[in-house]
Write a protein that binds this DNA or RNA. Structure first.
Lengths: 256, 256
DNA sequence: GCAAAAGTGTTTCAGCTACACCCATGT
DNA sequence: ACATGGGTGTAGCTGAAACACTTTTGC
C-alpha cells in the first residue's frame, strides 16, 4: 500500500504567470501545438501553463515545478488563489480532442488549483526543452480565447493580483532589482487600470520606506534621466513581506 | 463514456462553519464517533464537516450540500479560501484507521478545498439524521486536536475571516436580523482579537450606512436596554455585498 | 443605591487629494 | 528649439484616534 496512490488524473495546478516590460503587463502562455504535444491541427489556442499534480508533491511544489520547467527559475513568487472544479470545465469538444492526445485518462474529471506567479522578465529566458517554441509572453489586453476555463482562471488571477498589490508589497517582484519611479508607477497603473498622481505616488513610496533611492541614474535616454530605486526589503520575507499601506488614490478603503 | 468519471476518492470539500452567540465565536464540528461512522473507539476527536465531491456537482455545490445536510439551511454564506494538498495530510495512523471504516478507497490521496461559512446561529437547529448527536458548536478557544490537517485548515479560515470582515460587510451574516451595537462590536472584537473604541465604532457603523436603527429596544435586561439595528443591505448582494470601508482602529492600512 | 451595559461629542493629528511648473537629455 | 518623461511643494480637507461622563434598567 502506498499512501500516495495515483492522484494524477484528477487534480492539476495552473499558473497565471505575470511579467511586466515596456509598460505592458503580460502573461506567459503555452500553445497547444507545442513540442510536447502530439496534437497538431488548426486549434492553436493558448493555455495557462499547468500540469497534473504528482504523487509525492504538494500543491505548492507542483506549481514550483511548473515554473521551474518553463523558466528555469526557482523561488518565484507564487500565490494560490482559487480552485476550479466545475464538472464540465474541460468538456468542450476541442479541449477533449486535445486531451486525448496528451492524457492517459482523457475522460477523467479534473479540478485545478490556480496560482498566480510574479516574475521579473529580465531574469527569464524561456527554457529550451520541455516547452521550446510554444511558450510566449502575451499582453493581457490581447488574451482572448484560452483553452478550457482558462479565461475564467486568468480573470480571477488578475483580480487577485489587483487586490494583493494594494495590501502587500509584491509589485516589485515584477520589476528588475533596479527600477525607476516611472516604471513602478506605470506598473501600478497598469494593474489597477487607473491613473494615479505622480507626486502623491512618489511621496508615498519613498515615505513608506518601501523603496530606497540609488545614487545611480539612467544613461542615454532621450529625456531627463531617471533615478534608480531598489526595493527596500529582504528578498525572502516572512509571507509576502510585511503588510504596508499601499492603497492608491480612489481605491476603496475599508474599516479603520 | 461519462464526462464525470469518478472523481470521488481524490477531492473533498471541508467547511469551517462559524457561528456567534453569547459573545463567543464558535465552529460547528462533527465527532468521528457519530451516527454515520462505523468506527467506534477512544478516538473521539472532532473534524470539520466535509465530504468527497460528487460527480455532478462543482465545488461550491458540494460545500452547499454539506451545509444543507448539517443545518437544513440553504443559501448560507460560503467562501472558498484555500486548497490543501499535502501528500501526507491524511497519513496519521489514527486518521487512517478511521478512514478504513468510512471510505471505499481509504488509501487514496485526497486534496481538499476549504470553505468558510458564516451562519446565524439562531436559525440553525442541528439536523437530525445524517449527523445527529455528533455535530456540536465548539468555541474556537477550546478547539485543539482536530483530525487530519483540520487544525491548519481552521487556522486558515480564521485568518481569512479576519481579513474579510475588514473589507466586506459580512459580519452581519453571523448575527440575527436584529442585533444591538454591543453585539456587533463584540463580534468584531472577537474576530479581530482586539478591542475597539465604542464611540468610534458606532459612529463608523451608522455613518457608513451599513446599519439602520430600529425604533425597537431590548426589554427585560438588567441594564439600560439597547437599541436594535438591522443590516442595511439587500439580503442577496452581488458578491459579498459591496466593498466598504470597514477597517478598525489599529488595523493595517493599505494603499490609498 | 448599586451594578451593568448603553449611549453620546469634541479635539487633535496624520495623511490623502488636488494641482502646475521647471529640468535634463537626445534629436 | 522641441519633444519627452523626470522631478518637485503646498494648502485644504477628510477621517482616524483618543478620551469620560451620564443614562437607564433590574436587583
Amino acid at each position: 500500500m502506498s499512501l500516495s496512490t495515483s492522484l494524477n488524473p484528477h487534480v492539476s495546478v495552473d499558473c497565471s504567470i505575470f511579467g511586466f516590460s515596456d509598460n505592458s503587463l503580460c502573461l506567459l502562455l503555452i500553445n497547444r501545438n507545442g513540442a510536447k504535444s502530439t496534437f497538431k491541427n488548426d486549434d492553436n489556442r493558448f493555455a495557462l501553463p499547468g500540469d497534473l499534480v504528482r504523487d509525492n508533491e504538494n500543491l505548492d511544489e507542483a506549481a514550483d515545478r511548473i515554473l521551474k520547467e518553463l523558466t528555469g527559475l526557482s523561488g518565484i513568487f507564487l500565490h494560490q488563489f482559487k480552485a476550479f472544479g466545475d464538472p464540465l470545465r474541460i468538456a468542450k469538444a476541442k479541449d477533449r480532442d486535445w486531451l486525448k492526445g496528451v492524457r492517459q485518462e482523457p475522460d477523467a474529471r479534473v479540478i485545478t488549483v490556480a496560482y498566480l506567479a510574479l516574475i521579473d522578465r529580465t531574469k527569464v529566458e524561456i527554457k529550451p526543452g520541455s516547452f521550446t517554441n510554444e511558450a510566449k509572453w502575451v499582453p493581457i489586453s490581447e488574451i482572448k480565447d484560452l483553452v478550457f476555463d482558462h479565461n475564467e482562471i486568468f480573470g480571477g488571477a488578475l483580480l487577485a493580483l489587483r487586490e494583493m498589490i494594494q495590501i502587500y508589497p509584491i509589485a516589485f517582484k515584477l520589476l528588475p532589482v533596479k527600477f525607476t519611479m516611472g516604471d513602478l508607477q506605470s506598473l501600478y497603473e497598469t494593474i489597477l487600470e487607473r491613473e494615479v498622481d505622480k507626486r502623491n505616488f512618489r511621496r508615498k513610496m519613498v515615505h513608506s520606506g518601501l523603496v530606497r533611492a540609488l545614487p545611480e541614474k539612467q544613461y542615454g535616454v532621450s529625456n531627463k534621466p531617471a533615478r534608480f530605486y531598489v526595493f527596500n526589503g529582504s528578498t525572502s520575507e516572512g509571507l509576502y513581506s510585511s503588510i504596508v499601506n499601499l492603497k492608491m488614490e480612489g481605491s476603496i478603503t475599508v474599516f479603520n
